[in-house]
Amino acid sequence: MDQTREFLRSQGLPGEDAPLPSAERFPDGAQYRVEIPSTEGPEVLEAVLAEADARGVRVHRISQGSGGMLLTDEELAAMSGTAAQRSVELSLFARPLAGWDTSPMATSSGGAPVAAQARGTEQLVHVLEDIRRTAEAGIRSVLITDLGVLQMAARMREAGDLPGDLQFKISVQMGLANPASVRIAEDLGADTYNVPTDLSLAQLAAIRAATDLPLDVYVEAPDDMGGFVRHFEIAEIVRVAAPVYVKFGLRNAPNIYPSGTHLTPTAVALGKERVRRAQLGLGLLRRYSPEAVTSELGAEGLALPRT
């Protein structure tokens, strides 16, 4: 295996998984930021931010999974305005994708990886149009799962068809899980990368050695993403993976995608509990790594909405 390991090193990749400390940082020098996902609408956003205030949790990024396509113009404007006022990044999923389409493979036991892909030219167009509409509402971060969508969106950004300050946050559903694969996403235009939920500290360190991208790491994952609760590992995750978005999902909770007003009370309750989980997890981080540095709100590199 030594020959293969040496070849990987010659390509600028690590030759092995090893939990080495990361010297990389966010532009402001911070090691970690906090993300609350599955914030599915204006009411949920308001509730999450109010809960964060009440619990003393600094939330840097809010993400959403149902996509701009399931928000009205008024709802997009409200979420964009609230996030801008609070100096918080807001990232909306780019949809539609095969999982919500007429694809039987996407819902089959062996076809789950297809669910996050855009099928055919028409769906590629639809996803890019969803990104365009989201950006027109002033939002400057979108969640992407498909490599072709990423490449075309990046080229549109370069050409001026999308705002130059629009950031592409790669979803956990893209599934790339090794240093060489994540570098492909970086080369295609990714701005942050959400790694699979179950990577070890050594595997996270190996990916960090191959990319400068901030890594988004679930420290608590939804049941359909593995159901991991890794709060005691947060300090070590920050140590080996910085700069990292510490992402608080929620185990033992229903999947609410696609969301809507019929699920608002549930989405609000889940969002508030995610903030409580963040309070718990960050308490452990401070206990075991009190020197770890976080960002102020509105810090450089955050894709804040433009209103």
Rank of each mutant, 00 (worst) to 15 (best):
L128K: 13
E129G: 13
I131F: 05
R132P: 00
R133P: 00
T134P: 02
T134S: 01
T134W: 04
A135M: 10
A135G: 04
E136Q: 08
A137G: 08
A137F: 04
I139P: 06
L143K: 09
I144R: 09
T145S: 15
T145Y: 12
D146Q: 04
D146A: 04
L147C: 05
L147M: 08
L147I: 11
G148W: 13
V149A: 10
Q151M: 15
Q151G: 11
M152P: 12
M152G: 08
M152C: 14
M152S: 07
A153H: 08
A154K: 03
A154S: 03
A154N: 03
R155M: 06
M156E: 08
M156I: 06
R157K: 14
R157S: 11
E158T: 12
E158W: 07
G160W: 10
G160E: 11
D161Y: 09
D161H: 12
L162S: 08
P163V: 04
G164I: 10
G164D: 14
D165I: 09
L166I: 02
L166E: 02
K169L: 11
K169M: 12
S171F: 01
V172G: 07
V172W: 03
M174D: 10
L176D: 07
A177N: 04
A177W: 02
P179T: 00
P179Q: 01
P179M: 00
A180P: 13
R183A: 02
I184H: 01
I184G: 00
A185Q: 01
A185E: 01
D187V: 15
L188R: 00
A190C: 04
A190I: 03
T192K: 01
T192R: 02
V195S: 01
P196N: 09
T197S: 06
T197H: 02
D198P: 00
S200I: 14
A202N: 13
A202W: 11
L204T: 00
A205F: 06
A205T: 09
R208N: 08
R208M: 05
A209V: 08
A209R: 06
A209I: 06
D212L: 14
L213K: 15
D216K: 06
V219R: 05
E220N: 08
E220Q: 13
A221Q: 12
D223H: 15
D223G: 14
G226L: 01
G226I: 02
G227K: 14
F228C: 12
F228T: 10
F228E: 11
V229Q: 13
R230Q: 08
R230K: 12
H231P: 05
